[in-house]
């Protein structure tokens, strides 16, 4: 998209300094160093800008920008709201147990979804202001799941080739080393992907469809917990971002397609390991339904719901994205 759009955004945002992070077909994502209206809270903020499209009839264009800005904002709020409600339900049940109220724990056992929180919006110009969710990996890259996996995959490959040059490739020692490497790799990744799967399950149970699930749209944030003794391997909590193509739907078809899109994305970005990755994500997905069933003492209905979606996912895999075309 042209420089003109960036300049337009800058001109509409007064004194806010913007740094472009990414650009899609529809929107540009900027990073700003200040809160749009609460100066005492200076925190990095994401500004998502939907520029006007010159090819559209102006009345229609404004309508679309407004509607999409509002819709995306509503969805991220819905996820926040639903997570809080789930958490409150749980809180009612637990008696005197000390509950970690930090937002990060809305996930996992609490049936919530981690995503950016809405700070502000300007539907007339197509701006959404929200939390900036990011961390940095050891190699300086942003902590998307994609980058994290690539880093681990590369480390694995390097370490493997190192081991293989030391030992004779055919020796038993070598194969044991390989096994050990694989197991080590798996344990680091599996938990992360299961956590991601749980969140997707929670999200679908709120009837929200992400619409664009890829490993770039899942960000890992470091989580400091007393249990984590390993400084080299911080605990990561996955966050879902980029709800630009999201919608609200209770249809099994939509949820199955949502998962299928992730499967395909994993296949093309992480071709060697995607089968395992998908498997673990789906394990987490199923776990989310089980845990919800347990929380509400309604194990069976949730199991049934999950099975419906899983079966539909199998059907979607067979036919590809689309129903077959008629002439």
């Amino acid at each position: 998209m042209s420089v003109a759009n960036i300049e337009k955004a800058e001109s509409l945002l007064g004194d806010i300094k913007l740094k472009k992070i990414s650009q899609g077909a529809e929107a540009i994502i900027f990073l700003a160093n200040e809160h749009p209206y609460s100066n005492e809270r200076n925190c990095p903020t994401i500004v998502k800008y939907r520029p006007r499209k010159l090819y559209r009839y102006p009345v229609l264009d404004l309508q679309i920008v407004k509607q999409r800005t509002a819709s995306e904002s509503r969805i991220i709020f819905k996820l926040f709201q639903s997570s809080v409600i789930e958490f409150n339900k749980l809180e009612k049940k637990k008696n005197s147990e000390k509950i970690d109220r930090s937002l990060v724990n809305y996930v996992i056992n609490n049936g919530g979804v981690n995503c950016p929180k809405l700070i502000g919006l300007d539907v007339y110009n197509g701006f959404i202001f929200m939390d900036y969710i990011n961390d940095t990996l050891v190699n300086g890259e942003s902590s998307s799941l994609k980058n994290h996996l690539w880093l681990l995959e590369k480390t694995f490959a390097d370490s493997l080739s190192e081991k293989l040059t030391v030992h004779n490739c055919q020796s038993i020692v070598a194969s044991r080393e390989i096994e050990r490497e694989v197991v080590a790799l798996n344990s680091k990744i599996k938990d992360l992907l299961v956590l991601t799967g749980i969140q997707l399950g929670n999200m679908h149970m709120f009837d929200v469809i992400h619409g664009d699930l890829t490993s770039s749209n899942i960000i890992l944030k470091k989580y400091d917990s007393e249990n984590n003794n390993d400084e080299l391997q911080p605990l990561y909590i996955p966050y879902l971002i980029d709800f630009g193509l999201s919608s609200q739907s209770s249809l099994t078809e939509d949820k199955a397609v949502d998962l299928y899109v992730l499967e395909k994305a994993l296949e093309s970005t992480h071709p060697l390991f995607s089968k395992d990755y998908s498997k673990w994500v789906l394990e987490g997905y199923e776990l989310a339904y089980e845990m919800k069933g347990k929380r509400e003492n309604a194990a069976k209905p949730y199991r049934v719901k999950h099975r419906e979606i899983y079966k539909r996912l199998e059907a979607v895999r067979l036919r590809g994205r689309k129903r077959s075309m008629i002439g």
């Binding site: 899609g24 077909a25 529809e26 499209k53 090819y55 559209r56 009839y57 229609l60 679309i64």
Partner: peptide, 16 residues
């Protein structure tokens, strides 16, 4: 205007 805008939009997505 409506139909064509939609076509251009999905084309733009693919192009990106």
């Amino acid at each position: 205007e409506c139909l064509f805008a939609m076509l251009v939009e999905i084309t733009e997505r693919a192009v990106a």
